[in-house]
Design a protein around this nucleic acid. Structure first.
Length: 728
DNA sequence: TTAGTCGGACAATCAAGTGC
DNA sequence: CACTTGATTGTCCGACTAAC
């Protein structure tokens, strides 16, 4: 090779490149413009320009070693003799490599996505099937042509069972009705309006409906409502429901001249009836499951415990359809396989969120499924009948960016020790890597990948990109915070650790504020305003009470103030026990600061008092004034009072919709829904919230005793030189 | 016979790494 | 900072094919 390239290139005249036509034809160009070939062909002769040279891809030692580890592990697993370069790690049969050490600039392929996992299976074993095993061992017997022992149980036995239990569709969801559903559809013009609303407000956050094909099917169905197939009809009603659900009361009234609750109930009812017509509890049809998923989503403001149970049905159906298995997804064509993956991840993440607010352990968000994260591609690339794997260019954020980033983070987290510790502690020993030993490195790597591979290319002016940027950062900060709390509660945090945790809490609030204050993502508020970032509040209040004059205190109070302004309606006026606790924490933290300031001879001016404190004090004064008994301090102490304050709260999300009975559809046409849902604020798994920190807006009567214990336990992790859990 | 296509060997270039 | 390495880009030979 030549030396002194830089110097030489300055002296050497610029190389004249062959013309574009000759380059393309791979023939010698005489470099006269026009060149002889172009003259001969009578085409325009265009001089070529040099392509900007790409940065050379580094192939680091660590990456090489990781690959070597992987292959040596494979050899070990298959009992093949070899001379290992890397000795087998003691005390473990798992892959010793901390995951995520692969090249940072790897392509966004399924492999690379799953490379975020601590334990990506190199080959996913097929699920054992008794019928398959019988067939493999004995083969088809004589005269067994008509017997149902074949290679694939699902192909023969399952439909066979369907014929036996043909009339059993009514379990749980009531009997099938004979209502003519075509009368429940909106006018064609409204259908298209609802479809557009769904495309704008809902589908970007789920992407479970393939826009190009659905649009054609929808237009076709609008012209033939009497003959539309039940799965398609269920999907249509589900789309209407979610479109209406995504609007607020005023928007809905202005757009459709009907109340939101009336339309929502009508379309939810239509959807459930259409689902019944599909026999959805035993259907293996993806459209049907998609409709059921959207139907459940349209109840996202309802009782989380009821929602959680209903989601369990969707998960069981999904598992029966094997969309939780990558091998089975991959057996379908590109479009179908990808839509199955998207549906699985959408169900999984919604279930995670619901479990979290219902205060339940999530037993699905574990390393026990193999479906890879969806591809970062536009719907237009997914063409029916195509099997050619699409080229994914990470530098081009697509329509799927939001779901992809969430799935990538989720795919990483489901393998972490702290997720397993929260949700399935018995599986911690089975985690392939010792995440606890490397958690910091791995989270750092995850953050780096998310930033460099996805967020860096997002345009903050684009609503979906904006939401993706801030929500993923919020989520990562939440992981950091919860990872901090997952350490042994008996160990004392150092000052650094405690302050670092505060930094995560502040970041959570800053991201939440950015999302909920931005008019850009107004159309997504049905999702973004579902949950209040409670863990961050609790953490900061606890910290500020303990360290009222810490150097981050000013920033923390400002961040709290900014966020509180957005949620003031809920947090100030809610009679829910958990918000009462929050109010008390705020006042305690501020009292500690005032005392500390006075002790250092600083004057606390009126304008220094944070709005969050002023609002709470004003509310308390009002509550005292209206209190029935003079000594009643229930507004502060957290009692079991009831009442619906949601709709009255300024800035509050509309609390409307259905109770449990409405969701299960046992009543014919329940067009007068009532609000009677139990607010949920389960913090048993606070990190696990995809999207927000935990507590939904207040919705009604509460159980004050619920879940307080978990918060106490959570907070006991602090120590900070104090007796653990004393007055925190 | 002529013109077009394209696999692939080879050359040129230059970003990244190495050693002083 | 000079030098080396090797990944990436650019060139075009020559085999092959299609059209006339």
């Amino acid at each position: 090779m030549s030396s002194g390239q830089t110097t030489v290139s300055l002296v050497r005249p610029q190389r004249i490149l062959a013309c574009v036509a000759c380059q393309q034809r791979k023939i010698k160009c005489d470099r006269k413009f026009p060149c002889s070939h172009c003259v001969k062909s009578k085409i325009e002769c265009t001089p070529a320009t040099k392509l900007p040279r790409r940065r050379r891809r580094r192939f680091g030692e660590q990456e090489l070693l990781d690959h070597l580890r992987k292959y040596e592990e494979l050899l070990r697993q298959n009992n093949i003799d070899f001379e290992p370069l890397i000795p087998e790690p003691p005390n473990t049969k798992e892959s010793p490599a901390p995951h995520g050490q692969t090249s940072e600039d790897q392509e966004d392929t399924p492999e690379s996505s799953n490379a975020m996992n601590p334990s990506p299976p190199n080959k996913i074993p097929e699920v054992k099937s008794f019928w398959h095993a019988v067939y493999q061992r004995f083969g088809p017997g004589e005269n067994e042509i008509e017997l149902p022992i074949q290679d694939n149980y699902e192909d023969v036995v399952s439909p066979g069972m369907d014929t036996i239990f043909v009339h059993d569709n009514s379990l749980l969801f009531g009997p099938q009705t004979t209502i003519d559903l075509s009368t429940l559809h909106p006018e064609p013009a409204q259908m298209l309006r609802l479809w557009q609303l769904f495309l704008d407000n809902v589908n970007p956050l789920f992407r479970v409906v393939h826009t190009p094909t659905m649009q054609v099917r929808l237009i076709d169905a609008i012209g033939n409502l009497q003959t539309v197939q039940p799965p398609m009809e269920a999907l249509m009603f589900a789309i209407y429901s979610m479109a209406i659900f995504s609007l607020d009361k005023d928007e809905c009234l202005a757009t459709f001249s009907s109340s939101r609750s009336e339309l929502l109930t009508r379309y939810q009812f239509g959807c459930l009836q259409a689902l019944q017509n599909c026999a959805f509890l035993k259907s293996n049809d993806r459209d049907t499951l998609t409709a059921f998923f959207l139907y459940i989503s349209s109840y996202a403001h309802s009782d989380p415990k009821a929602l959680s149970s209903t989601m369990a049905i969707a998960i069981r159906i999904a598992q029966r359809m094997k969309i939780d298995r990558e091998l089975d997804c991959a057996q379908h064509n590109l479009l179908e396989g990808e839509m199955r993956r998207r549906l699985w991840w959408a169900i999984l993440i919604l279930d995670l969120r619901i479990c979290q607010i219902a205060g339940e352990k999530n037993r699905t968000f574990l390393p026990t499924f193999s479906t890879r994260v969806p591809l970062n591609i536009n719907d237009a690339i997914l063409r029916p009948g195509t099997n050619e794997p699409p080229t994914v260019i990470p530098e081009q954020p697509t329509e799927a960016i939001y779901i992809v980033v969430r799935a990538v983070i989720g795919d990483f987290l489901r393998h972490t020790n702290f997720n397993l510790a929260y949700n399935a502690p018995e599986l911690v020993p089975l985690a392939r890597t010792s995440v606890s030993a490397h958690a910091d490195d791995q989270l750092l790597y995850l953050e780096k990948v998310i930033e460099s591979r996805y967020l860096k290319h997002c345009n903050p002016q684009d609503p979906l990109h904006f939401l993706t940027i801030h929500e993923s950062r919020c989520l990562l900060a939440k992981c950091r915070l919860m990872e901090s709390y997952s350490t042994n509660p008996d160990t004392t945090w150092t000052d650094d650790e405690a302050q670092r945790a505060c930094g995560y809490a502040i970041r959570i609030l800053e991201c939440d504020t950015a999302i909920n204050a931005s008019p850009l993502v107004k159309d997504f508020q049905w999702m973004t305003r579902l949950y209040f970032p409670f863990p961050a509040y609790i953490h900061l209040m606890k910290y500020l009470r303990r360290e009222p004059l810490d150097h981050i205190a000013d920033r923390a109070w400002k961040t709290l103030n900014d966020n509180f302004e957005l949620w003031a309606g809920h947090t100030v006026e809610s009679k829910d026990a958990v918000y009462k606790m929050l109010r008390k924490l705020v006042l305690d933290a501020w009292a500690a600061r005032e005392t500390a300031l006075i002790s250092t001879n600083e004057i606390v001016r009126e304008e220094d008092v944070p709005k969050i404190v002023i609002w709470i004090k004003e509310y308390i004064n009002r509550a005292k004034g209206t209190s029935q008994s003079p000594g009643d301090t229930n507004w502060l102490s957290g009692g079991g009072d009831s009442g619906d304050v949601g709709a009255a709260s300024s800035g509050a999300m509309e609390i409307e919709g259905m109770n449990t009975a409405g969701m299960f559809g046992s009543m014919p046409l329940p067009f007068n829904p009532t609000v009677n849902s139990t607010p949920a604020f389960g913090m048993q798994n606070p990190w696990a919230t995809f999207g927000m920190g935990g507590v939904p807006p207040p919705q009604g009567p509460s159980d004050p005793s619920a879940n307080q214990v978990d918060w106490t336990a959570l907070m006991m992790g602090w120590g900070v030189g104090q007796t653990p859990g004393t007055d925190w």
